[in-house]
């Protein structure tokens, strides 16, 4: 069972081939583009000129970039925390519940995720608007509404992203929880362990890898999140929700400086790698612990 390298290679072949040709090559081309003045229109589009590091130099001179990087990190961390906690909670609460409850609640949470992004954003827009559904609801229970998108724009886009993305975490945790042996939990609870503490002491350690993986996947998809922010706030007001992807889009496609836009997305890639390494460390230690056990 240990050594048969050829077969191993064959199993990896379909995925590797597809990714190499249709993902890796374009990605490498993007890296190359970030050193050019590539544009889709305007006089720069006439011919591609190598400009060395000037796109990167421009990026460091651009005060908006630093702010956007900070916004991106805040947006990402907020989304991870919200989606993971809610996703796990829903998955946990849905365990061993009646089939129709699982289906109804699960499907409702799914709707935000499977909806096209523009529609989800439009829904969120009408939800968070000054006289939208949320404030109307708050008024009903005697709380004065606030201008969500104006006063707390970052919080609002994070909440919107949580609404949309939690389903993915829910599914991941549902699948993972299906594999957790319930008898451990039951015996722990018989021993007088509260449900909450048994979640932390028993279930989460078992699911450590799922937690890390799930967080990593959310991070990577949140870093690239664009449509939701673009439609809800367009990066505003006053640049408060201007993330790297918004900045990239504005530069690449609105200001037709694609080369510069691509350079910005390279910086985004670096942020992604930093996050990724953190999770790797977390996973790596988890594996070491397992080996020691």
């Amino acid at each position: 069972m240990k050594k048969q390298p050829v077969r191993k290679f064959v199993f990896l072949l379909p995925a590797t081939l597809i990714i190499a040709v249709f993902f890796l090559i374009p990605a490498l081309l993007c890296v190359a583009y970030s050193f050019t003045d590539l544009a889709l229109t305007g006089s720069n589009a006439k011919q591609l000129t190598f400009v060395g590091l000037s796109n990167y130099a421009k990026m460091f001179a651009d005060t908006k970039v630093l702010r956007a990087a900070r916004n991106t990190v805040v947006f990402t961390l907020g989304s991870i925390a919200g989606q993971s906690i809610l996703g796990f909670s829903i998955a946990y609460l849905l365990r061993e519940k009646r089939v129709w409850v699982r289906r109804v609640v699960g499907s409702i949470v799914m709707i935000g995720w499977v909806m096209p992004e523009v529609v989800a954003a439009t829904c969120m827009n009408s939800f968070f608007a000054d006289r939208g559904t949320l404030n109307a609801g708050l008024n009903l229970i005697g709380i004065k509404g606030i201008s969500w998108l104006f006063t707390y724009p970052m919080l609002t886009v994070i909440l919107a992203n949580i609404w949309r993305g939690t389903a993915f975490s829910m599914m991941n945790y549902q699948a993972a929880l299906d594999d957790v042996d319930t008898s451990i939990l039951e015996s722990a609870m018989l021993d007088g362990c509260g449900e909450i503490s048994s979640i932390f002491r028993i279930i989460l350690p078992v699911l450590k890898k799922t937690v890390a993986t799930n967080s990593m996947l959310i991070t990577l998809s949140t870093l690239g999140c664009f449509g939701m922010i673009w439609i809800l706030t367009g990066g505003g007001p006053g640049g408060k929700t201007n993330t790297m992807t918004v900045l990239m889009y504005v530069n690449a496609f609105q200001n037709s400086q694609l080369g510069y836009g691509v350079a910005i997305s390279m910086a985004l890639l670096v942020i992604g790698v930093v996050f990724g390494l953190l999770y790797t460390r977390m996973l790596g230690e988890g594996e070491k612990n397992e080996a020691q056990d």
Partner: peptide
Amino acid sequence: FMTTLPGTV
């Protein structure tokens, strides 16, 4: 990590 590259680019 490649997936952080925005699809629009």
